[in-house]
């Protein structure tokens, strides 16, 4: 689904590359989380997958970027649009402003793709219930809370059924309740296995629950890559400016205090922690 080879990218007038010789392969159906400190290149990677690097931001891109069978640097943004769905942090800015209700807002992408009316209606109803927005369907998109708006943004992208969905810190501007609502939708998305998902995220506790694979970015490079249990419990996280989940921290504290002697795998989720401390 994703095939990146030696990708290096400089933003215009930048002297330090945002991506430095990055190679990555993601098979179809995988839910892949990208973690890393601020400035590690998470957003740039997301924009590269969706074609906004280099088509929107310009700058200098070298290497091979192939997403959903599309040669990204050679294709136009319009050609990539149906193939890659992008959701980013600010929920308000993802509302087009060209439609007056939540239902019509979701329809906007389908209208542009020329989806026939009957199919459009069916797909909108499906996605409304998937994102738990059915009751809000006739409201103004601007009258929603941040969490609801972000679910709307996700629904608006998912309804277009792009083979690849990219989410760039979708909860970073939301309150805890809004974040929880969005993560609930992402967990359902992970469970369907229909779409390939790349999620850039700082909240490792959530990543640990539903990612198939975790990639750590540092200074535009991949420095760790593997199943969440391995990557998130590794001792290297702090040197990349990341804080392990509180479950891992608690387990490590217990080890240090001599409460636990066994060399069992450190927990990264609540369930694993319960198991670990039994």
């Amino acid at each position: 689904m994703i095939h990146l080879r030696d990708v290096t990218y400089f933003y215009p007038r930048a002297t330090v590359p945002a991506l430095a010789g990055l190679s990555l392969d993601v098979p179809a159906g995988q839910f892949c989380a990208v973690i890393g400190a601020n400035g590690a290149g998470k957003s740039t990677l997301c924009y590269t997958l969706a074609g906004f690097v280099p088509h929107f931001y310009r700058g200098k891109l070298t290497g091979q970027v192939e997403v959903a069978g599309v040669d990204v640097p050679a294709a136009s943004l319009a050609a990539i649009a149906g193939q890659v769905g992008l959701v980013f942090a600010n929920p308000f800015n993802q509302i087009t402003g060209a439609r007056f209700t939540v239902r019509e807002e979701i329809a906007f992408g389908l209208e542009n793709l020329g989806v026939p009316l009957d199919e459009m209606r069916a797909r909108i109803d499906d996605i409304l219930s998937f994102a738990k927005l059915t009751e809000l369907a006739e409201r103004s998109p601007f009258a929603l809370s941040g969490g609801q708006q972000q679910r709307l943004a996700i629904a608006s992208v998912l309804v277009m059924r792009p083979p690849l969905v990219v989410l760039d810190e979708p909860t970073s501007q939301l309150d805890p309740i809004g974040s929880k609502e969005v993560f609930a939708v992402l967990r359902d998305l992970a469970a369907t296995d229909e779409a390939t998902v790349v999620l850039a995220e700082q909240k490792l506790e959530w990543v640990a629950v539903f990612a198939d694979r975790v990639i750590v970015l540092h200074e535009g490079r991949i420095v760790a890559d593997g199943p969440p249990g391995d990557v998130l419990a590794s001792g290297d996280l702090t040197q990349y400016g990341l804080q392990p989940t509180r479950y891992t921290q608690a387990a490590r504290a217990a080890l240090a205090a001599g409460l636990r002697r066994d060399s069992a795998e450190l927990p990264v989720t609540l369930e694993e922690a319960v198991e670990y401390f039994k």
Partner: peptide, 20 residues
């Protein structure tokens, strides 16, 4: 950001469009 959001929703796509 809104320009990006519009592109993601295929606003720049040529060809026939439909309407809800």
């Amino acid at each position: 950001e809104r320009a990006i959001a519009l592109e993601v929703r295929a606003f720049g796509r040529q060809g026939p469009k439909t309407s809800l």
